[in-house]
């Protein structure tokens, strides 16, 4: 057993009586890509918001990089990068301006921020358009900028909330490669997606969450083997078997 970088223990969160997260516990090992899968409204984003210090849990404890989110949120913020599900950018400004600004907010000085920004933009294939206004970008480019921003500073842990939603295979592959490169350099990542083959490819382990509770947690291979020969069963089959076919939300 390698050391746990993030530990979530019995998290609960309700919005006006509605239980969005209902007793979620898991831990993520250092250097691991951990998938959080679940239908719409399952509680993935709410969980990420609590883990990333934005939302206070009604109860439960979170430890990130050895620091308690409840007691030492500032230290945790120093360690994390967050790529929110919705684009969170100043679209009137250039990609570079966005990255530099958030870099400075993450504590970099001007020079460091600019150097990092340029290298992240190159990594995500945006170097040519670095100085272009984000609101003139395609959906795929905006998604890549959104991801690039979360890399600013020196995060050791990334929360990626559906970073590949609504983009073409080219953009998606660029994002996969970026994430794999980050993992290879030791980054720990919590990843959510509705694309099961994506989770199968990237994630060492996945948790399937439904109605605010984790209903399965294991490696994709083990989960597939549970319902049939793993070569013939996809993660999507597992997902549908576990969460049922009825519509959510």
């Amino acid at each position: 057993m390698t050391e746990a970088y993030l530990v979530a223990q019995d998290l609960h969160k309700s919005f006006n009586e509605h239980k969005a997260v209902d007793g979620v516990s898991f831990s993520i090992e250092k250097g691991e890509i951990f998938g959080l899968l679940g239908p719409n409204g399952a509680g993935k984003t709410t969980t990420i918001r609590m883990l990333s210090t934005v939302l206070e849990p009604d109860s439960g404890d979170i430890i990130v990089g050895g620091y308690s989110v409840r007691h030492n949120a500032d230290a945790v913020r120093n360690l994390i990068g967050v790529c929110p599900q919705e684009l969170a950018l100043y679209e009137e400004l250039s990609a570079l301006d966005n990255l530099v600004f958030f870099g400075r907010m993450a504590g970099l000085n001007g020079k460091e921020a600019k150097a990092q920004a340029l290298s992240h933009l190159e990594l995500l294939g945006l170097k040519e358009r670095a100085k272009g206004r984000v609101d003139k970008f395609s959906g795929g480019m905006k998604r890549r900028v959104n991801l690039a921003v979360s890399l600013m500073g020196h995060p050791q842990f990334l929360f990626l909330d559906e970073p590949t939603v609504g983009i073409d295979p080219q953009s998606r592959n660029n994002i996969y490669e970026t994430i794999e490169a980050l993992r290879d350099k030791g980054m720990t990542i919590l990843y959510t997606t509705h694309y099961m083959e994506e989770a199968d490819r990237l994630c060492k382990r996945v948790a399937i969450i439904d109605g605010g509770r984790i209903i399965a947690l294991d490696t994709p291979l083990t989960l597939r083997s549970k319902i049939g020969p793993p070569e013939q069963v996809t993660l999507e089959d597992v997902f549908l078997r576990l969460t049922g076919r009825s519509l959510r939300d």
Binding site: S52, N78, V82, P84, A88, L89, F102, A106, G107, V149
Partner: peptide, 13 residues
């Protein structure tokens, strides 16, 4: 509304 608020509050700000 931009979503940048949430993002800002996961930084050192």
């Amino acid at each position: 509304k931009r979503g940048t608020l949430e993002r800002l509050l996961t930084t050192q700000l």
